[in-house]
């Protein structure tokens, strides 16, 4: 399976992971040696509530094929409600990026607890496959090339 993947184009996903849940889950996936697609580039934040929509746009504008946000399950936020703030921003952003002609599957929010290394693996693989179906992002090109 991996031979096949390495020959193909591999998407680049900028992943913002909450320190307390998804980042820990990705450590757990590592410790458990769960293999998954090498597409994510993780940026650790203390809470998904820290994720500024600007970060997501910047990632798309600079060439990310996808952006993955990993936060704590509803009710489980380490800081009580940061994940809800994240969810509300995400829901609004999804509407915005759809209007901007961006496939909404390029932006994904998942609740992955510290124990869910397996879920992390599945989410990354799934998203990677989806992005492979959609193909490389042209956002960077569009942003950088003024068409006359």
């Amino acid at each position: 399976m991996t031979n096949m993947n390495t020959e193909q184009w591999s998407p680049k996903i900028v992943a913002f992971f909450c320190n307390w849940c998804t980042y820990t889950a990705s450590d757990l996936a590592g410790v458990s040696r769960l293999r998954y697609a090498p597409s994510t580039r993780v940026i650790r934040v203390m809470c998904s509530g820290r994720i500024d929509p600007e970060f997501i746009m910047e990632a798309f504008a600079k060439g990310a094929d996808g952006v993955l946000i990993g936060g704590c399950h509803p009710g489980d936020c380490h800081y009580s409600e940061g994940n809800y703030k994240c969810l509300r921003r995400y829901d609004l952003l999804q509407r915005y990026i759809e209007q901007m002609g961006i496939d909404t599957r390029r932006l994904r929010l998942e609740w992955i607890s510290a124990a869910e290394g397996k879920k992390l693996q599945e989410v990354v693989n799934e998203m990677t496959n989806t992005l492979k179906e959609i193909g490389p992002s042209k956002i960077k090109h569009v942003v950088e090339t003024i068409e006359k």
Partner: peptide, 20 residues
């Protein structure tokens, strides 16, 4: 760099709802 992003962030943050 992006006033809209900032405003979306602020507005969405002000929402009260929790359920999807």
């Amino acid at each position: 760099p992006d006033p809209g992003a900032k405003m979306m962030s602020a507005i969405a943050s002000m929402l009260n709802e929790k359920e999807e």
